[in-house]
């Protein structure tokens, strides 16, 4: 029995390693290519490694497109969207979890049903709305439509329901208002759920593509994914080394954040169960 378990473990390691390598190879290939000489690529490559680290590709990528600005835009938008959703969703979640008012259940069902609407369906009217508001090429277009999420309301409501009400009863007898119960009791107790939800929202905003593609055309307003797309449009198949350097620049910040906060990423994914 023990021997069988050992064989099973070895087998598991072999498969896990094989899949792990296939996961890493494209990333390694990206880094190696980003360090190659620009012309080296088109010649017959003798070794897997570049002739020497050509850091100039990174400088070229950085100067061809305003990557610093892209980075700032992505970061700013993601931070505001994340905090905005945390505020609006936790407000709504508190109302649905704790307040007694007429029409609560139908209204909550209404919130739930908006979750079934895919983003692509509202794309055209939302775009026309942005035109009407004169918000094209602005942070407003990137941020304001995403300050609310029905899914977030649902998720946080479910979490708030798991918090025992005894704590609040004591506070209520002392005459605490709903606001102070929400702010001093519910929110501090919800830190893990808020962190997981926040990380997930940040990731979705950071990587969102189709919406910024439609509403942004001015180079200084682009986010990282759209900026990277512009870099591909600029070089096409001509200069893979710089294109890969740009991809590294665009991918690296999130990978670093992930490595430091991976617990919250995993929790965020298992909690929310959807990808933006």
């Amino acid at each position: 029995m023990k021997k069988r378990r050992l064989f099973g473990d070895i087998f598991a390691y072999i498969i896990l390693c094989a899949v792990g390598i296939s996961m890493l190879v494209p990333f390694c290939w990206m880094i190696i290519t980003s360090l190659r000489d620009k012309t080296e690529f088109f010649r017959e490559i003798t070794g897997l490694l570049p002739t020497g680290p050509h850091w100039s590709n990174y400088i070229d990528a950085w100067t061809t497109m305003p990557f610093g600005r892209y980075f700032f835009n992505s970061f700013f938008v993601a931070v505001v969207v994340t905090f905005g959703q945390m505020i609006t969703c936790s407000f709504a979640a508190y109302a649905f979890a704790r307040l007694k008012f007429r029409g609560r259940e139908p209204l909550f069902k209404g919130y739930l049903s908006t979750m079934m609407i895919p983003q692509q369906v509202t794309l055209i009217p939302l775009f026309l709305l942005m035109v009407k508001f004169r918000w094209l090429d602005s942070y407003y277009a990137l941020i304001v439509p995403f300050l609310v999420s029905a899914y977030g309301c649902f998720l946080l409501k479910q979490f708030f329901l798991t918090i025992p009400e005894d704590l609040e009863d004591a506070a209520r007898i002392d005459g605490a208002s709903h606001w102070s119960i929400f702010w001093r009791i519910i929110l501090p107790l919800s830190k893990p759920a808020l962190a997981a939800f926040g990380v997930f929202t940040f990731l979705a905003s950071w990587n969102s593509f189709i919406w910024p593609l439609i509403v942004i055309s001015r180079p200084t307003m682009k986010t990282l994914p759209i900026g990277l797309q512009a870099l591909q449009g600029f070089y096409g198949d001509g200069n893979w080394a710089v294109l890969m350097a740009g991809s590294v620049i665009a991918a690296l910040p999130m990978i670093v954040i992930f490595l430091f906060a991976q617990r919250y990423f995993i929790e965020g994914i298992t909690l929310t169960g959807i990808k933006g």
């Binding site: 990206m30 950071w206 994914p225 665009a250 990978i255 490595l259 995993i266």
Partner: peptide
């Protein structure tokens, strides 16, 4: 962590 890398990387990249 390794398997999760593509999930946190932009699909554009």
């Amino acid at each position: 962590v390794i398997y999760f890398l593509p999930t946190v990387t932009s699909i554009v990249a």
